[in-house]
């Protein structure tokens, strides 16, 4: 019973989390000491039902943590495609970047999350944005040897040319 709202969100303890949030309506968007909100914690740990509930309770999907981390980048890092879709349906910035120069698609490529890369591309992720070290998503897929991801990106580029 001493778990913080952040731990409850990360662990998907929805009942206890809702009880806590009902005590104070500002809690739902209260950032922790590094600027992470409960929505970011739930997105980072793949708790999709908690993400859905937090959004219904008024969680701000556009919020950024202290280093400009976003819920959509945290979900993309873990390859949680269902959560990425929920957030994109709230019109979050699909090309949200942080102080690493990271974008959701760069994190999905780095994690070798094929389905997540496909989803981000299908919804307009920018393939030209580079990480601080100059890597585009395609450069990264090649450098890391993620063949399937590389193929998904190539197919997407071919489709763009065809259209």
């Amino acid at each position: 019973d001493t778990l913080s709202i952040y731990q409850l969100a990360a662990q998907g303890e929805l009942t206890l989390l809702k009880e806590n949030l009902q005590k104070d309506e500002n809690l739902v968007n209260k950032p922790d000491k590094r600027g992470f909100t409960p929505l970011m914690w739930a997105s980072a740990f793949g708790e999709i039902e908690t993400v859905r509930c937090l959004l219904e309770l008024g969680a701000d999907p556009h919020a950024l943590a202290d280093q400009r981390e976003s819920a959509v980048s945290l979900a993309s890092t873990g390859g949680y495609t269902g959560i990425v879709v929920l957030l994109l349906e709230k019109n979050v910035n699909i090309n949200s970047y942080d102080w690493n120069g990271g974008t959701p698609i760069l994190y999905a490529v780095r994690g070798n999350h094929v389905k997540c890369v496909e989803t981000l591309l299908a919804r307009g992720a920018d393939l030209t944005m580079e990480a601080d070290s100059g890597y585009t998503p395609m450069d990264l897929a090649v450098a890391l040897g993620h063949k399937k991801v590389q193929q998904v990106i190539e197919n997407h580029i071919l489709k763009l040319f065809r259209n």
């Binding site: 914690w41 980072a44 981390e69 945290l74 690493n100 994190y107 990480a131 070290s133 990264l140």
Partner: peptide, 21 residues
Amino acid sequence: TQLPLYTSPSLPNITLGLPAT
């Protein structure tokens, strides 16, 4: 029993270990 505590979310360094382009 104390549930295990999760560490704070973090975004990885995307190109850790890769040569700069």
